[in-house]
Design a protein around this nucleic acid. Structure first.
Lengths: 123, 123
DNA sequence: CAGCATCCTGCGTGATACTG
DNA sequence: CAGTATCACGCAGGATGCTG
């Protein structure tokens, strides 16, 4: 079975965790599910849902986007114009990953959101 | 809609990320799906799948277990005997989370494991 | 507009040693 | 056996400023 082979490496879960490491990767992918978006749009989009304290620094966003690109989840498209215009879109692989995030969101909406908030508040 | 309310806080995805933060939490929950396990068993179980370099230090494992307990995913049962015997088991909430991990594993097995390994190897 | 360069800080994680 | 205590370190991630 092919299963045993891949399971050895470090199990899919660990690979998954590496892939989505970082605070924004999941949200970026989720945001891109509706179609291509420009750098600034993604940045703005990430602010929705933030509690309102911190901005996402270009350095961080840039890193995440690059990592996602190297993971093969998203694709970077540079229009090579001035002023710069760059779009990011999901790859095939990225699209196939959307349902997984959907499952996460779905579970999170009914199990986290509020009850888990006290675990935070307690801290 | 209740959706908007919970979505505001920081979106389910962020809450999810906080909940499973740490290298072992997902694997612990996954490991516990087959039934209760003792501290030492969990520790040994985590070594399967590790590339073989590092041990899991008690400090780290202890923290993860405590965090998972406070998240309400697992339940700690101390038998109060000597030598100590402590079992960890999934709660209802924890069990409901297993399918999500299954989805992750499933996706990971067909999309990561090897092709994504080069992203690692490159590093 | 879409980044990159530099500095700085907190925390997650590993190593080691000790205890009820 | 099932942890806790202490030390140390790398790195994610925020702040600020610059550029093509």
């Amino acid at each position: 079975m092919a299963k045993a082979r891949s399971a050895l490496r470090s199990c899919p879960v660990a690979a998954f965790q590496k892939m989505i490491a970082g605070k924004y990767k999941l949200r970026i992918v989720w945001d891109l599910k509706d179609g291509p978006r420009r750098y600034g749009e993604i940045r703005s989009g990430l602010l929705r849902g933030a509690v309102g304290s911190a901005e996402i620094t270009p350095r961080v966003l840039s890193r995440e986007l690059k990592a996602l690109t190297e993971s093969g989840l998203i694709d970077r498209r540079d229009f090579g114009v001035v002023p710069p215009k760059v779009e990011y879109r999901l790859t095939r692989k990225g699209k196939s990953f959307v349902p997984v995030i959907a499952a996460i969101r779905d579970w999170g909406e009914r199990n986290l959101s509020e009850p888990a908030a006290l675990a935070d508040a307690a801290e």
